[in-house]
Every structure is written in structure tokens, then in C-alpha cells.
Simulated assay, not measured.
Amino acid sequence: MFLAGLLATWALLARYGPWPHHLFPGPKAVAESLAAMVGDGRLWAAVTRSLGRLAQGYFLSVLIGVPLGLAMGRLRPVRHLLRPLVVGLQALPSICWLPLALLWFGLTETSIIFVVVMGSVLAIAIAVEDSIMGVDPLLLRVSSTYGIRGVRFYGGVLLPAALPSIITGLKLGWSFAWRALMAGELLYVSGGLGQLLTMGRELMEIPQVVAVMLCIIIVGTLIDRVLFQTVEVRVRRRWGLATS
């Protein structure tokens, strides 16, 4: 019912709203544009291109962000030294890294992947640090009493205890990575979803712009629901933090 009402409102605004029809297309025009892009293969090619970049950038962000957050959470000198810098850089919009990326790496895939990494790695590091700092101190004291140290401590006590919060942080980092990717692709001819948006704007194909925006929302929602939410719910159930 809600979706039907939303579509009806959209159609009414497109027909009788304050904007010209060519600037605010209705559901029918957007659906036709979406079907055309699916039919000629442009949409599938753009989605796979964007998801490939996302996978590379996000994987690098996890490889860097998790150890960085772990170090900040466990080592006080590292936390005092790096946390102000990490928090400050996190406040910088990821798109601000694009000019430097283009100067350092040129018009290459590396530039966009660099923007994706800078858009998500700091959020992951902060989330992991908060997860480590939130572990029950009693659990840490008990493990110390039993002489659990080194790899056994990190792999068997600390990381499992912080895992539910870490997964939530990884999901947050993914959302930042997805936004950074779209921003980077909008400003650089890249063959992804961002380029389809730019082409639609330049050609005044507003139905294409809206169709690609809907596709970005759908892809992002599917990844969140199918991957992250599934893992998060299972871990929380396993850890006794959720009942259903």
C-alpha cells in the first residue's frame, strides 16, 4: 500500500506538479528508460563495473581499517596519536580526495578506488576502535587471569567479543564506500553507474537519471539486506544478543 501510494503521488506530481514534465518524469517514462538500458545491456555493464570497483576498494579498506582500529583500541599511545587525525580526516567528504587522486594516479581505475578507500577506511577504523573499547572489561580481566595472551587472546577473546559491533561498523564502512564510489564516477568518465547519471544529465535524459538513481538505491538495499543484515542477524543470534 505504501509503495502504491508513493507511485501514485509521484505520478500526480509529474502530471500536475510545479516542474515541467521533461524535468520531472513520471513512473512510466522512468520505467521505459530503465527497460531500454536493460535491453541494450548498458545497465548491467554499468552495475558490474561499479560493483567491481566497490569490491576492490572496500576489500582494501577492510584490510587497512580493521588493524588500524584494533591498534587504536588496544594501544593507548597509538590511540592518542592517531585518533585526532583519523577523526579529522573522516570529517572530510570523500569527494575532496578526487583532485589529489587524479593528480597522483591520473585518469585511471586507481583514482576511483583510492577515493573509495579514503571514503570508507577511516569509518571502519573508528567503528572497530569503538567496538574494541566497548568489550566488557570483566572479560578482559578473566582472560588475563587465565593467562590468555597473544594470538589466543585476540583470536579467541577480543575479536569474538567485539564481532557484532565490528560487523555493524563494516556495514557502515560499506555505505560510505558506496557513496564515495558514486561521487567519484560522477566526475570521471568511468563506465559505471555514475557515468550513466552524467550522460543522462548532459543529454537532458531525465528519465535515465531517475532510473539510474533508482538502480543505485536498489543495488545498495540488496547488498545491505542480503549480505550485511543476514550476517549481522546470525552473529547476534549466535552471541545471544537477539531472539528472533
Rank of each mutant, 00 (worst) to 15 (best):
G220R: 01
G173P: 06
G200E: 03
I216A: 13
L197I: 15
I216N: 02
Q195L: 15
R225W: 02
M213Y: 06
G191F: 13
L197C: 12
L227P: 00
L196G: 09
L196S: 11
L181P: 10
V219T: 04
L197W: 08
L197N: 04
F228V: 02
F228G: 00
T221G: 04
G191P: 05
S175Q: 14
I218E: 00
I206G: 05
S190I: 10
I217R: 01
A211H: 01
G173W: 05
G192F: 11
E205G: 06
G200C: 09
V209G: 02
L172Y: 09
L197S: 09
L187T: 11
R225M: 03
Q195V: 06
F228T: 00
L187Q: 05
G194H: 12
V189M: 10
V219M: 07
G194F: 13
D224M: 02
I216S: 05
F176A: 07
L187D: 01
L172A: 14
E232A: 11
T230Q: 03
W174E: 04
A211D: 01
P207L: 05
I206R: 03
Q208L: 15
G220L: 07
I218K: 00
W174D: 04
A180S: 14
E202V: 13
L203D: 03
P207F: 04
V210A: 09
T198N: 12
E202D: 12
R225E: 00
L172V: 14
L197P: 10
Q208G: 09
L203V: 08
V212I: 15
T230E: 02
L196K: 02
W174Y: 15
R201D: 01
G184R: 03
